[in-house]
Amino acid sequence: MKKAYVKPKTLKEAHFHYCPGCGHGIINRLLMEVIDEMGLREKAICVAPAGCGMLLYNYFDIDTLESAHGRGAAVATGIKRVRPDNLVFSYQGDGDLAAIGTAEGFHAANRGEPISIIFVNNGVYGMTGGQMAPTTLKQQVTTTTPLGRNPILAGHPVRICEVFSMLDGTSYLERVAVNKPAAVIKTKKAIKKAFQCQLDGKGFSLVEILSPCPTNWKMGTIEACRWIDEVMAKQFPIGVVKEIS
């Protein structure tokens, strides 16, 4: 009988450290499924971030470098320029890419570096305990916006895909989510497309993934998944933002 559900070969035998209901585990698994299905295990070099995703090298059975907070795109640039035949992708959170590492991400995108960024947007700094992220929604309560994010004082949620879409160097930008099975399947397709875009030498690709963080959103896991559709996706519309054929 055919097994309907098996662990990807390139995912190590380890238990995820992520909180219950967190989207990182799904995204980690999807990445390794894609690596397996595209046969890229021996070609892939991953740049891990600082943040909740930082321990992914405990799960990924591929060559991995841990980058300083925000510097993933610069480090990936250095690797890719030396090894153009490898698949180089950087895994970054919203604080990492949209705050401290904006310059590095923006300019790698603008140069059209043939790298892929897996951008996990959960609207908070998870690892440090739920502070406001650049992608935190207006009025959203975090530990550093206890009265809700007031845009007059704390600015507006940053839409990275839309910002990057203005750059001539970007080739493929899509926003997806991992809050329900259909969305998860779409996310996997988007990751595949991003990697294929890189392998085809088309330039810079980025997949922004809306990902639940029930712990820091102070929600139940199902509530968090619903909140992505009902609230978060209003600010961050799901879909392809840019695709150069």
Partner: peptide
């Protein structure tokens, strides 16, 4: 590079790639 921070991190990437 876009900054000295980016430059040193590109060096790090290039170095780790050999």
């Amino acid at each position: 590079s876009e900054s000295e921070i980016a430059a040193i991190n590109m060096v790090l990437g290039a170095s780790v790639a050999g």
